[in-house]
């Protein structure tokens, strides 16, 4: 069993980390802003929550623990996912015409190196604070853009064939969930799960709907449409919030990576080489993804995320159930 004695992450902090993982990619990826996609996100989130619900609401605490070998297996998709996120972040910086994206990546790796040498609780607190800040900023968006929103844009016909499965491929937080539960009490894990489900099924779709009303018929363009949305909201001329959102997007992705890497690191016993042992493969994966964008295609995530995010936790829970029944029958 992995690190069972540490219950570092509270419910709110766990929820924050899971939502930051999703938001990191939400800001970096070319999300289509349409009602159909908002519905797809909401439906996918509800389906994922329904599939995971029985695992979170079991009373047996042992069901929350992955065997060490399974947790080690879980590290691979988590690291791949982090590399994918770095590559998407690089593309976002490039599309936003950031001055020196390669230097920003170097800085990001510096931040990751520093953050991974700190206690894990600091990442948990940072995630909690960031999501609280995001909550306020998300509240401000509809207020600023109320006057320029076109309700009719919600009915713009879109090709829904490409939307199916898009949200599954972006649900990288599912890969983190089993590892996150290792350092949470059952109650905290339930709270994180519920917060994540509400945030993903309600808040993100509402943001997409708001974006669809702002962006009109131009729903897809190079770079993230979220920044087109910001350019169209009138208050952004007075209070320049673009800078805040750009750094918030980077902060989301960076904190998500810090959280994931902390969890991946804690699978094994502490080692002085653990941090570099994570950052070197991460740098390799992200380098490949940046230079060869098709290295980790969307189709790969279509089976990797359901397998490691839902399949393995279910397998572990069933194994635990069979094992418990076997022990009980042996004792009687």
């Amino acid at each position: 069993m992995t690190n069972t004695d540490r219950k570092d992450w509270t419910g709110g902090q766990g929820m924050a980390l899971l939502l930051l993982c999703r938001l990191g990619l939400f800001f970096s990826h070319e999300t289509p802003y349409s009602t159909a996609y908002a519905l797809d996100v909401s439906m996918t989130a509800l389906l994922q929550a329904a599939l995971l619900l029985p695992l979170y609401f079991r009373n047996a605490p042992s069901a929350y623990q992955l065997p060490t070998w399974l947790a080690r297996c879980q590290r691979v998709p988590c690291l791949l996912w982090c590399g994918y996120l770095v590559a998407q972040l690089y593309r976002l910086m490039d599309s936003l015409r950031a001055a020196k994206p390669p230097l920003l990546l170097l800085l990001l790796f510096g931040v990751l190196l520093y953050a991974l040498t700190l206690p894990e609780v600091s990442a948990a607190r940072a995630a909690g604070l960031t999501i609280a800040l995001a909550g306020f900023a998300f509240l401000l968006l509809p207020i600023t853009g109320f006057s320029t929103a076109h309700v009719l844009s919600l009915y713009t016909p879109v090709d829904t064939a490409n939307l199916w499965g898009l949200e599954w491929a972006q649900s990288g937080e599912l890969l983190l969930m089993p590892l996150l539960r290792q350092c949470q009490s059952p109650k905290a894990a339930k709270q994180s799960f519920c917060g994540w489900a509400i945030g993903k099924a309600v808040v993100i779709p509402l943001t997409i709907v708001f974006g669809a009303m702002q962006n009109g018929r131009l729903q897809n363009w190079e770079g993230n449409p979220f920044f087109l949305l910001l350019a169209r909201t009138p208050l952004s001329d007075t209070f320049r919030m673009d800078g805040f959102w750009i750094w918030f997007a980077v902060g989301c992705a960076a904190l998500a990576m810090v959280g994931i890497l902390h969890r991946v690191k804690s699978v094994d016993r502490p080692s002085p080489f653990a941090v570099m042992g994570l950052l070197i493969p991460l740098a390799a994966v992200s380098g490949i993804c940046i230079l060869q964008p098709s290295a980790l295609p969307v189709s790969l995530w279509h089976w990797l995320i359901p397998l490691f995010g839902i399949g393995i936790p279910w397998a572990a829970a069933l194994y635990d159930r069979i094992h418990t029944c076997h022990e009980r029958s042996a004792s009687t």
């Binding site: 018929r217 131009l218 363009w221 169209r232």
Partner: peptide
């Protein structure tokens, strides 16, 4: 620009 392209690709 966004309205012009939006109308050209949509509508």
């Amino acid at each position: 620009a966004d309205r012009i392209l939006g109308d050209l690709y949509g509508g």
